[in-house]
């Protein structure tokens, strides 16, 4: 197998390409960003790679604290602040070291994105809410809450049919969910009212 040599150098404790001093170099078709990220995470553990499945508790605590802050703001109707807290927590959660368990990261992110989606819905920022809810569904499909938020966001965007579909899908995963049943009924009643209202006009 042909092996092409890689020209690299180390600048400021970072691996970069030798010719352009770039971490990600289009000209050399090389990227050292992945190595540098893992090296950064390894420094936090003093270069000791934890055994498979081990998690440093600090990050989880930090994320949990930010989530709690967000929840407090959300309950007090300070939605903008809640979104800021959740966003910080999400960024920290996405920056988890790669060797930590994926399942943990997915659970954590699903909850955070779901909460942020709710805050966005409260602020009527439906596009952002939809993107977050999509993320929740991607991370944790069997969780009815993600579908519920997705449905709310779609209805908010005026894509009522898609929204109803999303909520029905959520009901399949959790037929008992009271909030979905309620929301679905509301939307269907509204449509029915509009339909009869339209008829009366004619």
């Amino acid at each position: 197998m042909a092996t092409s040599t890689v020209n690299l150098s180390i600048v400021n404790d970072k691996v970069v390409c030798a010719d352009h001093q770039a971490e990600v170099c289009d000209k050399c078709h090389q990227s050292f960003a992945d190595i540098n990220t893992i090296a950064r995470h390894l420094k936090a553990t003093n270069g000791q790679l934890p055994p498979p499945g081990a998690v440093l508790p600090q990050r989880s605590q930090q994320i949990a604290k930010m989530r709690e802050d967000g929840n407090t703001h959300f309950r007090a109707q300070r939605h903008q602040e809640a979104i800021a807290s959740y966003t910080n927590a999400i960024n920290v959660a996405f920056d988890r070291p790669l060797w930590e368990p994926t399942q943990l990261a997915r659970e954590e992110l699903a909850v955070l994105l779901c909460n942020r989606s709710a805050a966005y819905i409260a602020r009527k920022e439906y596009v952002n809410a939809l993107v977050d809810a999509d993320g929740v569904v991607e991370l944790k499909r069997p969780w009815s809450k993600g579908h519920f938020r997705r449905g709310r966001a779609l209805i908010g965007l005026g894509r009522t049919e898609e929204g109803i579909e999303a909520m029905r899908l959520g009901l399949m995963f959790d037929p008992e969910s009271a909030e979905i049943q309620k929301a679905l009924k509301e939307v269907e009643d509204k449509i029915a009212a509009e339909a009869t209202g339209g008829d009366e006009d004619k």
Binding site: I10, V15, I35, N36, I38, A39, L42, K43, G47, L98
Partner: peptide
Amino acid sequence: VQLTAALL
């Protein structure tokens, strides 16, 4: 640390 990262 960098070598460990590259090996991973």
